[in-house]
Design a protein around this nucleic acid. Structure first.
Length: 906
RNA sequence: GCCCGCGUAGCCCAACGGUAGAGGCAGGGGAUUUAAAAUCCUCAGAGUGCGGGUUCGAGUCCCGCCGCGGGCACCA
């Protein structure tokens, strides 16, 4: 009998189990068939444009890091829809770029085909997570209907003189077969692939982003962006105010102009330095010095950025004297002119006045070559000067010394006066400089947007054919825009994508495409393509009207949706993508194509999702050593058994040994071997990487726990913007939570009366507030509390409905299934957000902490509107308070209404 | 070297300047089970990296350090 009852109970449980594997596809299919997330363009509703940084669809598929950002935007999108907003929540593909092309070279699959495969896989993964994207607004940067407009924008840049060609020293990466933007080079190596980069002179397309430097800087003001990102953009633009000052030389008619931010230190300029590339180098070099100078210049020019970097690390400065002198315009002093590669040709005028007393770099150089150091600035009101370094203080805290008529002025005042005096003699002018350089916009690869430009071809023999290799000259100096009605200029089909080492790129090999005849004349197309950044510079605009076949987008749509209300993506794009997109946006604004000055009103970066916490012990020759004796990790080598590192203060190599939790024990601040408590081990989470083997694949998590659990877990892990480790065990907590929500709805326990009324209203308020403030982890914590209460004490229907609605943004499939169970025929994602009454979120009885001189002595329970008198009276009635008052005099009472009481005694 | 962020129970993380604990993981005990898993109940656990300061009161604000992570790096 008993067994029979048991069985029946267990049957009742299994009759309606929570099976994400079934309900998730069910609701995904329903959402799709009902076009549940089709964008509502109703202008009478408030708008909310919530955007993810669209991904490059890599072959590796979606990453749990993507999921975090996409879940956050999806939570907001679903929440805002429920709050009555019309929401634009699109997704697309930043699909041009090197990996597909490299894959093509390796496996012979056309980049287009490969890209479509990887897009399909990404889309499958995204849909499996139940994100509410409107695929009717999808864009693909490699689609000719999209890049047609990327090319159109390029032509507008060209017509405005913002796209131009230049012969410049570029970062040529032989391994990648292309040039790279300055931004794509780190420590003299390519950011992508970590290959060496060389400096070579090449004809390049450039975009004049520097013309927008001030606006890119000024318009940051007022954006709701992370301060760190704003700071990085400001520093990247690097606006710096100073003056250009001209020094006469010994050669008539040849003067050296320098840029300085410290004209107040002019009396301390004891030598000058020209960059090795400076055009005056040859003229100023004396015969006696010529051999040495030529030697130095040729070495410097061939130095890779990597080598320059290493020289910087060593703090060793190199240089050579030209043999000639310049005249300091402020005091007529003769100063020697040197050449050194610590002066950059690309910044300012490529020449400096060196003030070793007040600039550390000049100081180091002067020390190395025994050049004079003259102090001209001192701390205001006396004070210590550094003994072995430059004194770099300026402004009102520093005054001039040894500076003729300007002595005793503050540094700030002297800057103005000296420039004014020299300006009157036309040897100085106030100048602003930027670190920002113009943007190198051409790439020598196949898989990118063709640049819609062609050039006249001059044939040596007028009847010759350049396609056959007949002698000809391409007039690169006469670029012609492809007519707008001929766009898109399609990428020609080919099977040969291999970079040839030829800076013209693979397209140059397609002679039938490259050369064409018009009105009896030959022309040659530009064979470089655009960089991957191009497509992402304006995709957020196309999203508003992705299927428009006639124009880039309709003005109605642009005005109806821009600017982006919330933009979410990785901090790695803090400078590059965000700066480039802002630049294009401003150009489009000037053209009247868009109506907002800035594209992204609010920006948030998701924190990195790290791998699981790992315990790592270190061994040298089979013996354990403490982790603190281990130096830097060595460069990763594929397929090695452990990770290797140098050992501090020795030539030994340590090998990493992965340890299980049972092999380690907490010891003081860190962890040690359980058998050897003095040997410390590393306990930390590492970045997910293939080589470390700690990558979590979302597909696996969905298969095991379901999409809702993955979504909710990603939101629960910790602060959205902070890095946090993955914890496979901790997902269980979320799985339990999801199950609990399920059982509250499917195995309801009726409560006697609406006993959760206040908790319900508090929870509705809390979840809404926390979604809006990006505190998703605490929103879920509030829901966990609520669900626990409903499980423990039973619920009424209003509880169950509120719970399901509040859970919906995080676990939408579960919520839809529950909503249906609660008797609703329509979709939950179409239902309005629950409301709360403020009065019901406030407690009637308060527990007031009582302190005596700041120390906790207990609490008193009082009505919500209790006065100070009442609380004080009850507090004084407590023994713990009385004991603390013995022998003391009450001098002050701090009463924070509704919060706490503090009795201050002496 | 400079800039930014972060250091709170074994772990992940909460906490308008006002009772250090919301939530989760792991752990102990118990219930259920032939057993295990799952589930439920329950218990315990830190004084907030270190040193100063401001305050009636500091995890929170200020100063100086240490550690971790990220970014920048000869920009005159």
């Amino acid at each position: 009998m008993r067994a029979a009852v048991q069985r029946r109970t267990s049957v009742a449980h299994t009759a309606m189990p929570y099976t994400p594997r079934e309900i998730e596809p069910k609701w995904q299919a329903r959402w799709m068939s009902e076009r549940a997330f089709a964008t509502d363009h109703d202008p009478n509703k408030p708008k909310f444009y919530v955007l993810d940084m669209f991904p490059y669809p890599s072959g590796a598929g979606l990453h749990v890091g993507h999921c975090e950002g996409y879940t956050a935007t999806d939570v907001l999108a679903r929440y805002k829809r429920a709050k009555g907003f019309r929401v634009l929540h699109p997704m697309g593909w930043d699909a041009f770029g090197l990996p597909a092309e490299d894959f093509a070279i390796k496996f012979g699959v056309h980049p287009h085909d490969r890209t479509q495969e990887t897009i399909a896989n990404f889309k499958r993964q995204i849909n499996a997570l139940g994100f509410s994207y409107d695929w009717e607004h999808e864009v693909d940067t490699t689609d000719p209907n999209y890049y047609r407009w990327t090319q159109w924008i390029f032509l507008q840049l060209f017509k405005k003189g913002l796209a131009f060609q230049d012969e410049i020293a570029v970062n040529w990466c032989p391994a990648l077969g292309t040039v790279l933007a300055n931004e794509e080079v780190k420590n003299g190596r390519s950011e992508r692939g970590d290959h060496p980069v060389e400096r070579v002179m090449l004809r390049q397309w450039m975009l004049r982003i520097t013309a927008y430097a001030d606006r890119l800087l000024d318009d940051l003001e007022g954006l709701d962006w992370p301060t760190s990102t704003m700071t990085m953009q400001r520093e990247w633009i690097g606006r710096s105010e100073g003056a250009e000052i001209t020094f006469a030389t010994e050669i008539a008619g040849e003067a050296i102009t320098v840029f300085t931010t410290r004209p107040d230190t002019l009396f301390g300029a004891t030598y000058m330095v020209l960059a090795p590339e400076h055009p005056l180098v040859g003229k100023l070099t004396t015969d006696a010095q010529r051999a040495a100078v030529e030697q130095y210049v040729s070495v410097a020019k061939n130095k890779s950025d990597r080598e320059r970097q290493e020289a910087l690390g060593a703090k060793k400065k190199t240089g050579v004297f030209t043999g000639s002198f310049a005249i300091n315009p402020v005091n007529g002093a003769k100063v020697p002119v040197w050449i050194a590669d610590y002066v950059l040709w690309g910044y300012g005028t490529g020449a400096i006045m060196a003030v070793p007393a007040h600039d550390q770099r000049d100081y180091d150089f002067a020390q190395a070559f025994s050049l004079p150091i003259v102090q001209v600035i001192a701390p205001k009101g006396g004070g210590a000067m550094p003994e072995k370094s430059a004194y770099e203080v300026s402004g009102d805290d520093a005054v001039l010394v040894n500076s003729g008529a300007f002595t005793a002025l503050t540094s700030g005042e002297a800057k103005k006066r000296i420039v004014a005096e020299l300006a009157a003699k036309s040897v100085a002018k106030p100048t602003v400089n930027y670190k920002l350089r113009d943007w190198v916009f051409s790439r020598q690869r196949y898989w990118g947007e063709p640049i819609p430009i062609y050039f006249p071809v001059e044939m040596q023999d007028p009847s010759g054919d350049p396609r056959k290799g007949d002698a000809h000259t391409i007039r690169y100096d006469q670029p012609i825009a492809v007519s707008e009605d001929e766009l898109p200029l399609r990428l020609p089909p080919t099977t040969d994508f291999k970079p040839s080492g030829d800076p013209l790129g693979p397209l140059a090999k397609l002679k039938d495409w490259r050369f064409f005849q018009k009105d009896g004349r030959w022309y040659a197309r530009e064979t470089n393509t655009m960089p991957q950044w191009a497509g992402s510079c304006w995709y957020y605009l196309r999203f508003t009207d992705a299927q428009n076949a006639e124009r880039i987008f309709s003005p109605d749509r642009e005005q109806g949706w821009m600017n982006v209300d919330l933009y979410v993506g990785g901090a790695e794009h803090a400078v590059l993508h965000l700066l480039y997109a802002r630049f294009w946006h401003k150009v489009l604004y000037d053209l009247g194509v868009v109506t907002t000055k800035e594209p992204f009103a609010k920006l948030r970066h998701q924190g990195m999702v790290l791998g699981e916490v790992e315990y790592t012990g270190w061994k040298v020759d089979g013996e354990w050593i403490s982790a603190k004796n281990v130096g830097d990790e060595l460069d990763p080598i594929e397929e090695r058994p452990g990770i290797w590192a140098s050992v501090k203060n020795s030539k030994s190599i340590a090998q990493a040994q992965k340890l299980s939790e049972s092999q380690v024990k907490k010891a003081g601040e860190g962890f040690a071997l359980v058998d050897e408590l003095t040997t410390m081990v590393d306990a930390r989470a590492h970045k997910m990487s293939k080589s470390r083997g700690n990558v979590i694949n979302p597909d696996d998590v969905v298969a095991e726990h379901g999409a809702d659990a993955l979504r909710a877990y990603e939101m629960f892990m910790g602060d959205f913007e902070q890095a946090k480790p993955w914890d496979t065990r901790a997902i269980r907590g979320i799985t339990r939570f999801v199950n609990n929500v399920w059982s509250v709805v499917f195995e309801p326990k009726e409560a006697e009366g609406d006993q959760h009324l206040k908790l319900r209203h508090k929870t509705i308020k809390a979840v809404g507030d926390r979604i809006e403030t990006f505190k998703f982890n605490t929103a879920i914590a509030a829901l966990m509390e609520y669900v626990s209460a409903l499980q423990a004490k039973g619920s009424v229907k209003a509880d169950r409905e509120a719970l399901v609605q509040l859970v919906a943004p995080f676990a939408p499939h579960l919520a839809e299934e529950c909503w249906e169970q609660l008797g609703h025929a329509g979709l939950l994602c179409k239902a309005p957000w629950p409301t709360f009454e403020e009065a019901l979120t406030i407690d009637d009885v308060l527990v007031i902490p009582v302190q005596v001189s700041g120390k906790m002595r207990g609490t008193v329970e009082v009505p919500r509107d209790a006065t100070e008198e009442l609380v004080k009276e009850r507090a004084l009635a407590m023994d713990t308070v009385q004991n603390a008052l013995i022998g003391k005099t009450l001098v002050k009472v701090i009463w924070v209404p509704g919060k706490m009481l503090n009795l201050v005694v002496k």
